[in-house]
């Protein structure tokens, strides 16, 4: 018995040290920093992101760290305010897609049969479509705008969550504790809720972390194409797109692009580390 205790202790310690892996830590720090920036943006940004006050197309200087754009707006302030758009909209996207996908996947996995067949074949088919182009089609039909872009990407990205949730539930359904609950007469829905939910939360959190970066990328991509955020919104993808028109004024697109890169990379660092830390039994559902 003493042996067992020391053993679990050791595992616990090892887990924690993996949590503290530099990559995951860097990722978490950057994400938190960007979240803070988004919250206090009006306080830290030196200028109004929409104010056309300065001289146009100025290269970076002491007054305007990231230079100014074609309308004389301060790029640094716009990049800071951009965090208020990209971060929450991407979060909204993964939460909506996560809920939709998990619920559909859970239903498919738990009830099986034709329900499973219909849901999962639909997931396969949506996955066959190129995500950004299908999203473009949906936005074209709904009309451009950041929220419509979010809706469009939800439509194309739920299958990933559905697949993970389904495969986990299929495994869990065979677990003795779930079987015994069913034998004891617990209703299907109650079993689903009380026993399975806590067990699939971990992998889903990892998946959300991994998908968050992708959400930021695809939303800024749609904005870059002119289908997401509309001018004069200070959205990073839209800013890169405006910068592309003033090709030699590199600062207009480099800085917002770097902001996207940092957020996405941070999310991927974190997600990747979390995936390594997570229980190996559920890990394979994620690959």
């Amino acid at each position: 018995m003493a042996n067992v205790t020391t053993n679990t202790h050791r595992v616990g310690r090892k887990r924690r040290s993996e949590w503290m892996q530099p990559l995951g830590l860097i990722g978490a720090t950057i994400l938190i920093a960007f979240a803070l920036i988004a919250i206090v943006a009006p306080l830290v940004a030196p200028y109004d992101p929409l104010a056309q006050e300065a001289r146009r197309l100025m290269p970076p200087s002491a007054d305007h760290w990231f230079g100014t754009d074609q309308l004389g707006r301060d790029v640094f302030s716009r990049v800071i305010h951009g965090a208020r758009l990209s971060l929450p909209y991407a979060l909204q996207l993964v939460v909506m897609a996560g809920i939709l996908g998990t619920v559909l996947g859970a239903i498919a996995g738990f009830f099986g049969g034709w329900v499973d067949g219909v849901i999962m074949r639909a997931a396969d088919l949506v996955l066959a479509f190129p995500d950004i182009i299908l999203a473009m089609a949906v936005v074209a039909a709904l009309g451009p705008g950041l929220f419509n872009a979010v809706l469009a990407v939800v439509i194309v990205s739920w299958p990933i969550y559905a697949r993970v949730a389904r495969s986990m539930i299929l495994t869990l359904r065979q677990e003795p504790f779930v079987l015994s609950r069913r034998l004891l007469g617990a209703s299907s829905i109650r079993t689903l809720w009380s026993e399975i939910r806590p067990n699939i939360t971990g992998p889903l959190v990892v998946l959300v972390a991994l998908e968050y970066g992708h959400a930021v990328l695809i939303l800024s991509g749609l904005s870059f194409l002119g289908l997401g955020a509309q001018p004069p919104a200070a959205e990073w993808g839209a800013m890169v797109s405006e910068g592309a028109k003033y090709f030699d004024k590199w600062w207009m697109s480099v800085f917002p692009g770097l902001a996207i890169l940092m957020v996405v990379m941070a999310a991927n660092f974190l997600g990747d580390t979390l995936r390594d830390v997570i229980d190996p039994r559920s890990k394979r559902h994620l690959s």
Binding site: L217, V240, F247, S253, P256, I260, L261, M265, N268
Partner: peptide
């Protein structure tokens, strides 16, 4: 290589395209 490959899947394609064009062409 882990960092490189994570960077590869993190970089916004449209931005990289612009930056590369700026550097290698301009």
């Amino acid at each position: 290589i882990r960092v490189i490959s994570l960077a590869g899947v993190s970089v916004p394609t449209f931005w990289l395209a612009l930056v590369c064009l700026y550097v290698f062409f301009f």
